[in-house]
Structure formats: C-alpha cells, structure tokens
Design a protein around this nucleic acid. Structure first.
Lengths: 333, 333
DNA sequence: GCGCGACGTCGTAGATGGTCACCACGCATT
DNA sequence: AATGCGTGGTGACCATCTACGACGTCGCGC
C-alpha cells in the first residue's frame, strides 16, 4: 500500500506538502505541486479515507435509513437524496431497516461509530431515544416521510391528511357510501394523518364513521391482503376502499382479484402513493401521488445546509400530494 | 467524545484491557471485565470505528454496486446480500451506478479509499480496469448478474441463454411465427446471452432470423417503449415479442396499450425477469423468473468465503431460470 | 544601501482513537 | 527453585492532517 510518505519521498518534499497539494486549501509552489501530482500518478497513490476521517474526525458519508428497500416510494426518494449528495461531495450509505426497530437501532449505532457526517431517516418506530443519541453526538439528522414527536429535527413530509381527504372525498362524490379504510401502523404519523384525512372527509360529507369498515395493517403487501380479506369475511360490505399506502393497496387488489370482486363495480379502490406501472394494471388505479424524488432532494438539501450551518433554525417542509383519478374509482353509470 | 482511555481510567484498568473486553478474543479476569462493561455503560462509550478500521487496516463494510436501484430485480438481490452480510457481521453500503460507467468508477474508487472489506458489483460496462484495480489492491470482488471477460472473480449468474430459449420456444409452440426481440445493450453479457437464447430457439424451430424483428435498447423502460414503437412503425409486423428484461417489458407494454394493440391477440408478450405484481396486470404477464434474492444470497456467501480464505479457488455459480406462463402469451383459440 | 517587518511557503512533530505484539508479573505446579 | 500459563500493562503503529515555527524573499522606509 503506497502512503503519503512514499509520495513525499518520491517527490522530494515533506508529507505535509503532499497533503496540502492534495487538499488544496493552502498555497503551494506550483513547481512542487507539479512534482507531487506527477508522483501521485506515477506511484498510483490513492489517499486512505479511513486515516483521513480519523484525523479530521468526520467523514463524507450520509446514512440513509429507510424502512423498506422494496417499496418504490423509498427507492425513488433515495435517488433524490443521492443526486444532492453527489453534487455536494458526499456518498450515500443506504440502510434498510425493514420496518424493524431492532435493525433501525443497529444502523443508528453504526452511523455513530462510523462517524457518519449525517443521517436521513424514515423512522420505523417512535423510539425517540435513538434519534436523540444522534443529535447529542452532534450528528445532523433529517427525518423524512414520518414525523417524530419530541426531538426538533429538520423534517420533510408530504401533506398526508389532505391527500387522504381528497381521496375519500372523491369516493364520496362518486356516490360511494360504505367506504372502507385500510390504515397503517398506529404509531406512525403517516398512518394517523391519513386516517385523520379519511375521517375528516367522512364527517364533512355527513357520513357515519363505521368501525367495521376500518382495519389497521402494517404498510406491507401481506397486511393489505389480510385486511381486505377480513373486511370481506366480516361482511362489512364496503362499496369502496381507501388504502393508506402503495403496498397495502397491491395486497388488497390481489385479494379482490382472487375473490373475483370486480373493480370498481363491486368495490372501488383508491390507493395512497403511486405504484410503478399503475397504467398497466386493469382497471387503472386511482392514487394519491406523492413527490417521492422531491422529498429526497429536499431532505438532501436540508442536510447539506445543516452541515454548513449547524445552528440554522429547524425546518419543516411539507410537500403537496395530488389525486390522480383513474378507472378504479369511477362509479359505473 | 468519550474514548477508550476515559473508560480505562474510570474502570481503573489500562486501555488494552478495555479493548480486550470489547473484542473478546482474549481471556480477561471476569471481575475486571465486569468493571469495564459497567464503565462503558455508565459513560455511554461507543467505540470509534474509524480509528479501529485504521489500526486494523480493514473495515466491516461491503460495497454493493448495482446498476439501477429502481429495478426491483436489484433491490430484491440486495435483500439477499444484506441478510448474509448482517449474519456475518458486515454492513452493506448500497451504491447505485445508474448504468453509468462514470458513476461506477467513482464508487469503485470510493470503495478503495474507504478500504471496504469487499465489493459486490453488477457491472454497467465492460471496463475491466476498475475491477482489476480492486483485485490488485487485494479487495475481494464478486461479480453478479453480468459476466466480465478477463479478470477471474467469483461470479453469480442466472442461466440467461436457457431462459431466453425457453421463452422463445414457448412462443413458437403457441404458434407464433414473427417473434420480435427487444435486446439489451450489446456489451452486457446478460443481453448477449438472452439474445443468443432467442436465436437458438428460432434456429431449433427452423424459423428464419429476421433482423427487422430485432431491436437493441438500454434495459430501461423508455428504451423498451421506443424499441416497441420502432417495431410497430417500421411495419415489422411481429405477432409476438420477447423482451430481454423487466423494465423494457413494461415500456413495451405501455407502448402497446397506448397504440391499442390487444395482448395476446394482436401481439403476444413474454418478458425476462419478473415484475412485481405481475398478477395485477391485465392480461397477466408471462415471464422468465430469476431467483433475485437467491443471487444476492449466493454472492454474499461467496464474499464471506473469500474473506475467510483469500486463496480459495474462483467459483462461478449459475442459478436456474424458470418460465412462468400466464395469459399474455397464450394464443387465443 | 541596509535593516526590519511582513508574508508566503515548507518541514517538524504531535494528535487522532484503537489494536496488538511483546513483555512483566504472579501464582501454581513439578 | 524452575517452569509455565494466565493475565494485564506499555508502547509502537496505522495514514493523515495541521498548528507552529523556521526560513527565505521582498518591499518599504530611513
């Protein structure tokens, strides 16, 4: 392994000078700099980031802890973060907590011991302690997608309540009256906000809130499937469904297809968060679209800003959602 | 920041003893160990991984460089790698090269300067030099999904040629005669193997290989869409389509839907690599399924093995593919 | 013309936080 | 008393960065 000393010896200068040339903050005699750069090339030197990080006691890594790599929403978001990070000279370490608080804790611990420059996280739980740990250690944190009670951190969210309200109101306007809701885990702000939007729309329309039409699942495909099955089995007799995230929507659809329920004539469906290739599904699917990529970009920008100015005031960004009406929610004439 | 020396002082032992307790290779007096662990807890000490990595001149990070985070095939694969890595005490750093050789080079350079323990890569290009760099630096590499000419590395592939042959033969058996092929970038082994399988099946059936029925695209949705449009516009008049990856299949389907081509009566479709929720697409889609998660697992196992035994002989694993027949390729009576 | 101060450039050396080879010491066994 | 093993401490080392000081040059003022 060729070190900075080898380069120094080869170029006939001190290691400090090599370091200065490499980092370029300080002025160095151009002739020496030239000798250094050519020595670097000749020896094939590449600096040891580990040693560098130790000495500077910071790294150029961002940990992005997401709750599900297989959810297209999160991968799109990661792309947004990535683009900002790269432009700002950071690298992204993607960590998949899998909606598992245990794994999440581990990744947070890793971010600390690895001295990551910053963390972007979509929390799987409400365990605030872990995030506190990061903040106490002076590690900037941006919370995305899900709000966290307690610690004051930069946050990027979407307007969940409004989106859910739009979706439910749309179903009401189409003439549906027994609108079921498959919600997410009650400890996640996204789940409660979307459920609130659903309730608010019902109230605004003067419709009763029937507990028999509500299920809470886990934001995953399997959970959506089972919730739908339970709605059908318990004879709740919904004429429409609002599902609070993309994967649960897919699960519910699979259940409906399997049970030969026609959409939207037997039951209409609106999902929250788009699913890829929604156009290919038959009938095409009405969804509340969220700007996933943009959420990632904004989070990245918030993090770069905080790294530059640690004392900047805490920001909370709420991006709009949009109802995209397709065939699955249009009441047949 | 609390260091190992603070712990040592607090526990009344030397730093070496603290280190030994933390790492646990050597025997330490249980009484001392107890004092150390309680001091660690009391002071909230967490070891500095950067310093540790520097001293040991190795890390516990794997770089997984994939060519597209938004392709479900790769995310499923990453899950497989992750499960193995975690069990073996490593963490996964996910890097998205985006089919861009430039980005890929950057990530490889980062893997080197960051002293990553190993690299798992699905190459976006045939630039062998970068991979050579890793190998020369003694960094173990596992190549996945796409074969690389030249450097002898552990490799995990699927049986692309056979899968493509199965798909094409299936279309032939259904009575289709003008079977189009949308292939991938010619410099990727997956693309050429799948194209070879297509050609072989045609030859076996005694069908001519009509260049007017073949397009080469980029393994992305947009590319598939444009290739399909070109096939239709140039009056190649295919009665069936074999598309060489999942995203291009989706693109082609979108084009067909838009042009009101009925599947499979106007044109039958078989895709390579499953797409999520294929059951919800109408008609349901016939695909060649690959064991994505298993590819990741095997790659992870190969990497752990090589880390344990650097001189183990180079392994090349080829996993089977399987044709899953659904509605899109069944010729109407 | 000379002296002095300022500035720019470069080298020396210490610091970063852990790990581990090596050594020392104590106690038990022969 | 000598040997050996188990245990714990000392200090070198990993590769880099950077504060500080030294040295040389240049300009300005007397």
């Amino acid at each position: 392994m060729v070190t900075i000393y080898d380069v120094a010896r080869h170029a006939g200068v001190s290691a400090a000078t090599v370091s200065r040339v490499l980092n370029g903050h300080t002025q160095v005699d151009p002739a020496l700099a030239e000798r250094v750069t050519s020595s670097v090339a000749e020896l094939g030197y590449r600096r040891n980031a580990v040693a560098r990080n130790l000495r500077r006691s910071r790294t150029t890594l961002w940990a992005v802890i997401i709750s599900d790599v297989e959810n297209p929403f999160f991968t799109a978001m990661v792309r947004g973060v990535e683009d900002i990070a790269l432009a700002a000279g950071y690298s992204v370490v993607l960590c998949n907590s899998d909606e598992n608080p245990e794994k999440e804790s581990n990744y947070i611990a890793a971010a600390l011991t690895e001295q990551m420059a910053g963390v972007i996280i979509s929390p799987s739980s409400n365990r605030v302690d872990d995030v506190k740990l990061l903040l106490d250690a002076g590690c900037p944190v941006v919370v995305i997608d899900r709000e966290l009670q307690g610690p004051r951190t930069d946050t990027v969210l979407v307007d969940n309540e409004h989106g859910a309200e739009l979706a439910t109101t749309h179903l009401v306007e189409q003439g549906y009256r027994r609108i079921a809701c498959i919600g997410g885990p009650r400890w996640l702000s996204t789940a409660t906000s979307r459920h609130d939007g659903y309730k608010r729309a019902l109230a605004a329309a003067g419709l009763p809130l029937d507990p028999a039409l509500v299920r809470f699942a886990d934001f995953r495909e399997r959970g959506g499937y089972e919730a739908m099955a339970s709605l059908l089995d318990d004879a709740a007799e919904p004429d429409a469904l609002f599902a609070a995230n993309n994967l649960m929507t897919v699960g519910a659809l699979e259940c409906l297809v399997q049970r030969r329920q026609a959409i939207p004539s037997d039951i209409a469906v609106v999902g929250f968060d788009s699913i890829p290739w929604a156009d290919l599904i038959r009938p095409t699917l009405t969804t509340v679209a969220q700007p996933a990529y943009e959420v990632g970009r904004q989070a990245g920008q918030l993090l770069t800003r905080r790294l530059a100015k640690p004392d900047a005031e805490v920001t909370r960004i709420v991006l709009p959602t949009e109802l995209q009406v397709r065939a699955s929610s249009i009441r047949p004439a």
